Computed example of a mutant assay.
Amino acid sequence: MATQKLISVLLLQLLLVILASDFSNGQKLNVGFYHKTCPNIEAIVAKTTQQYISRAPTLAAPLLRMHFHDCFVRGCDGSVLLNSTASNSAEKDAFPNQSLRGFHVIDAVKSAVEKKCPGVVSCADILALVARDAVRMLHGSFWEVPTGRRDGRVSVNSEALRGLPAPFANITQLKATFASKGLSVKDLVVLSGGHTIGTSHCGPFSNRLYNFTGKGDTDPKLDKNYIAQLKTKCKPGDIKTLVEMDPGSFKLFDEDYYTLVNKRRGLFQSDSALLDDPETRAYVIQQATSHGATFLKDFGASMVNMGNIGVLTGNSGEIRKQCAFVN
């Protein structure tokens, strides 16, 4: 009888430990997480980000893309910010991430935050806030950013290669990738609108101009006049020239991306693919014909959804002292 009672007590204690662990590691993000521990966090981030974007507006797009690339590999844990080591090649050095820029902005923001609130704010949260502020500074959306993420300690090159959607992905592949992260088809088409800012090297779409099926042909889904324009900028084998993803307004966060896609002028195959699904096509047409009536609001909502992917909270992970290095 005493033995059974002892076993019951031990099982109860074990259950309480498990529940406590689940709670500490399963907390949700929330707006104002740093209200008491770092009350001026958003002002500090915005001020420092503004200092860089005001001088170099083209940094906004790669900073937004950096947050996207972080969340799609291991969740939004700042793993894309970690440097490679002698024994490990990190996400930062994976081929899809070699064109990312703006790591110095994240480091500057982190340094400014550490001066006011040392050891409190994660790099993952800083990245999410910087992405929002960079978009806002190009006249884009404003959304409340839930915070409370902690930083991961692992970053693996090969995981970035496998986890990030490719610019040549078709609609089936895109939907599957987004669904695997808990994102909807609407999130897919809305977040694709981030291509309204920024540039791309010729390489990711060169095959659409010169050798689409291996026979020296062009992509029939790409507008012929646009192909002719692109060929004047991107010669065969050119991997250095930069092309605006949203010609004429690539420094302005607006709905023009959808107008271009609707005219079969989306730069990547993944852009054109949005016309191959009834739901994504309907959204493209809606925004293109309504001057982006709901795009900015939708973008903020989808960014919040994306920012929740695989987050570390509670006792998981750490708060890095420097974003490029584990503690």
Rank of each mutant, 00 (worst) to 15 (best):
A2P: 13
T3R: 15
T3N: 10
K5F: 12
L14K: 08
L16K: 02
I18F: 03
L19V: 06
D22N: 11
F23K: 09
Q27A: 08
Q27I: 06
K28Q: 05
L29A: 01
N30E: 14
V31T: 12
F33Q: 10
F33V: 00
H35P: 01
T37E: 12
C38H: 10
P39R: 05
E42T: 13
V45P: 08
A46T: 13
Q51G: 13
A56G: 00
T58E: 13
R65C: 00
H67C: 09
F68L: 12
R74T: 09
S79M: 06
V80D: 05
L82S: 07
N83L: 11
S89P: 02
S89R: 12
A90C: 01
K92L: 09
P96F: 09
N97D: 07
R101Q: 14
R101L: 14
V105Q: 01
D107T: 04
A108L: 02
A108I: 04
V109T: 05
S111C: 02
E114H: 05
E114W: 11
K115P: 11
C117D: 00
G119F: 00
V121G: 06
A124T: 05
A128D: 03
A128S: 04
R132D: 04
A134H: 11
R136Y: 10
H139G: 03
H139Y: 01
D151V: 01
D151T: 06
G152C: 04
S155G: 01
V156T: 05
S158R: 08
E159W: 10
A160W: 02
A160K: 04
G163H: 02
L164I: 05
P167T: 03
F168I: 07
A169D: 02
L174D: 06
A176K: 01
F178Q: 06
L183F: 08
V185W: 08
L188A: 06
V190D: 04
L191P: 04
G193Q: 01
G198E: 02
H201M: 13
C202F: 01
G203K: 14
G203N: 12
P204I: 02
P204C: 01
N207D: 14
Y210Q: 12
Y210P: 07
T213A: 12
G214F: 00
K215V: 08
K215P: 07
G216K: 03
D217K: 07
T218V: 14
D219S: 10
P220Y: 02
D223T: 08
Y226P: 07
Q229V: 10
K233F: 04
V243I: 10
V243N: 11
E244S: 14
M245T: 14
M245F: 05
P247R: 08
K251R: 15
F253L: 09
D254Y: 04
E255T: 13
E255G: 13
D256P: 01
T259L: 15
V261R: 10
G266H: 15
L267F: 03
F268T: 00
S272W: 00
D276R: 13
D276T: 12
D276I: 09
P278H: 13
E279P: 08
Y283W: 10
Q286M: 14
A288V: 03
T289H: 12
S290K: 11
G292C: 09
A293Y: 04
A293K: 15
K297W: 00
K297V: 09
G300M: 12
S302W: 07
V304C: 13
L312K: 15
L312R: 14
L312N: 13
T313C: 07
G314E: 05
S316W: 11
G317A: 05
E318H: 13
K321G: 09
Q322P: 00
A324Q: 15
N327Q: 09
